[in-house]
Amino acid sequence: MAAHRLTLSVPAAPTAVTSARHQAMAAIAGWKAELDDEVVHTAELVISELVTNAVRHAGTGHVSMTVRLIATVLRIEVCDSSPVLPQLGLPDECSENGRGLFLVAALADQYGAEPTSTGKRCWAEIALPTSPDQKSAVALPLQRS
């Protein structure tokens, strides 16, 4: 499979989430890589969650996103200017937010965050099915704090 890449920068504003998601989905569709619906829908949700977190925590400036399709992996990277790395946890039942990284962890095959010279990079990888019968299983040993 050929390598494909989209890189974009959006303002750290709530409207950026919709813009980033739409641009990424248009690019992915344009790659004509014949990704199955589950991968595309998973990517759409992961992009929304990572960009939302970046916008929420970046302060001012821009958020950058790169989506790459290489071999059998779709990788999504979102960078912002905050040096604070996210912490995975399960929020209270009454919390109105705090579930984004939990969703990313549940949907992606791998995910992580790392410091950069200008803030941080949060990333997630979605493995492409190698056969039509391949199913993914998720095991999440999380407890409420």
Score class of each variant (00 low, 15 high):
M1H: 11
A2W: 01
H4T: 12
H4V: 12
L6R: 10
L6W: 09
T7V: 15
T7M: 09
T7G: 07
L8I: 13
S9P: 04
V10S: 06
P14D: 02
T18L: 08
T18Q: 08
T18F: 03
T18A: 10
A20D: 05
A20T: 07
R21T: 14
H22I: 11
H22G: 01
Q23A: 15
A24H: 04
A24C: 12
A24K: 02
M25I: 13
A26G: 02
A27N: 04
I28K: 03
G30F: 13
K32F: 14
A33P: 13
A33N: 11
L35N: 14
L35C: 15
D36H: 15
D37F: 15
E38A: 15
E38R: 15
V40A: 09
H41I: 12
A43S: 13
A43N: 06
A43D: 06
S48D: 07
S48M: 08
E49R: 03
E49C: 04
L50A: 03
V51M: 03
T52R: 06
T52L: 04
N53M: 10
A54F: 09
A54S: 12
V55K: 02
R56W: 00
H57F: 14
A58Q: 00
G59L: 05
G59F: 10
G59Y: 10
G59M: 04
G59S: 03
T60D: 07
H62S: 09
V63E: 01
V63C: 07
M65L: 15
T66E: 12
V67L: 14
R68N: 11
I70N: 09
A71E: 15
T72R: 12
V73A: 11
L74D: 05
L74N: 08
R75C: 11
I76D: 01
E77M: 11
E77H: 09
V78S: 01
C79F: 07
C79R: 13
D80K: 08
S81T: 14
S81I: 07
V84L: 11
V84C: 05
L85I: 08
L85T: 07
Q87M: 08
G89H: 14
G89E: 04
G89V: 00
D92V: 01
D92S: 10
E93W: 10
E93T: 08
E93I: 10
S95K: 02
E96F: 13
N97Q: 04
G98S: 05
L101H: 07
F102V: 11
F102N: 04
F102P: 00
L103Q: 13
V104Y: 09
V104H: 09
V104N: 06
L107H: 05
A108H: 08
A108Y: 10
Q110E: 13
A113S: 12
A113T: 05
A113C: 07
E114F: 00
P115K: 02
S117G: 10
S117V: 13
G119R: 09
C122R: 01
A124C: 06
E125Y: 03
I126T: 01
A127R: 12
L128E: 01
P129Q: 01
T130V: 12
P132I: 02
P132C: 02
D133L: 14
D133F: 14
Q134H: 12
K135P: 00
V138T: 12
A139Y: 03
L140E: 00
L140T: 02
L142H: 00
R144T: 03
